[in-house]
Nucleic acid binder design. Structure first.
Lengths: 179, 179
DNA sequence: ATGGTTGTTGTACGATCGTTCAATAAGAAA
DNA sequence: TTTCTTATTGAACGATCGTACAACAACCAT
């Protein structure tokens, strides 16, 4: 992740990664079947880290469906989720999706997991069963789009703005917050 | 674009591109200062193509603000915008943003151009001046997120679903369509 | 026809790539 | 201590990378 963030996908060579880790280049081959497998496992690790951060944000929120939903989307725009190192890993992974079917399958599974989690939160927040699928797709797309642009050019808009935009959108999906 | 789509960012070497174009590898150096410049110019070309397709879609729509706005977002989910070759180019470009300041600047400019165009359409559709900025950021993020996921795994949801989701979101930004 | 500009080729160079492997260090089990 | 397994090294290999360049083809103005 550190090498990807610093040198980009092109600069993330076996040697550069080994040097960053303080080991010899040969050791990489001992633990990973190849550089693509290393990137895939890095992505798996990043996905687990994101999932954990999202779960922690939901757990810290008041035990109320709408508050948990808002915590879920807001967490996407703060550390440790919104940071350049994560973006670099994501992009390196995406660049393999088109040409490697196995990577494409991994992406589908992890996207499905994310959306299933979101659907559950939306259901608890009162979204009708028939609207659940489209609502989850919409929220995921909005959050992903905001997260992507926030990481690509942080000076364009702030984390707070992104969170406000996403929470406002939740209002149009679930109805306004009851006060 | 064709090589990027077929072989991914890693496989888009000078030799592969030259072979696809039916010329010798040396000729690439004659027209481009380097491989990164070639990718940057490819992105510029893709951006121009997208802009043209969006403009054509708006021009073909009824001369009514809301219809034009809907045509603008709907066009993002149909050819020639939603296709793997475009995604591959975009990803290859994104992978350079983090490590190359000049690429980052180019991204900022082209994103700003896209958002300015969208703000104009939203203004004509009756969005209040104070909401314009956030509305444009939101619509851009939603469309980008839908477009990205649609290109990454087309079997997850259809172009029509993406269009319907985006148009519905427009209703929450501009108010419902008057019939 | 001729001189000069432009287009294009193919090769060569040095660097770096991913991967392999014999050799060594470390550690645990006997 | 000895033996076996595991961890790790560093060099080496063949392939491919981006780039540079001398040479040749094409074309155009004179």
């Amino acid at each position: 992740m550190r090498v990807l963030a610093r040198a980009g996908a092109n600069g993330a060579s076996v040697r550069a990664i080994a040097q960053e880790a303080g080991v010899s280049p040969g050791l990489v081959g001992h633990y990973f079947s190849g550089i693509d497998a290393l990137i895939a496992e890095t992505y798996t690790h990043v996905d687990a880290m994101v999932t954990q951060a999202l779960n922690a944000a939901v757990a810290a929120a008041p035990s109320e469906p709408r508050a948990q939903l808002e915590a879920f989307v807001t967490a996407s725009f703060t550390a440790p989720i919104a940071q350049p190192a994560l973006l670099a890993t994501w992009i390196a992974f995406w660049s393999l999706v088109t040409s490697q079917p196995q990577i494409a399958r991994q992406h589908d599974e992890q996207y499905a997991g994310y959306r299933a989690r979101l659907e559950q939160l939306l259901r608890e927040a009162g979204v009708a069963e028939g609207d659940l699928r489209h609502a989850a797709i919409a929220v995921t797309a909005l959050v992903d789009g905001l997260w992507l642009e926030l990481c690509l050019s942080p000076q364009c808009f702030s984390s707070e703005e992104a969170g406000a935009i996403a929470r406002r959108f939740l209002g149009t999906v679930c109805g306004p917050v009851k006060e």
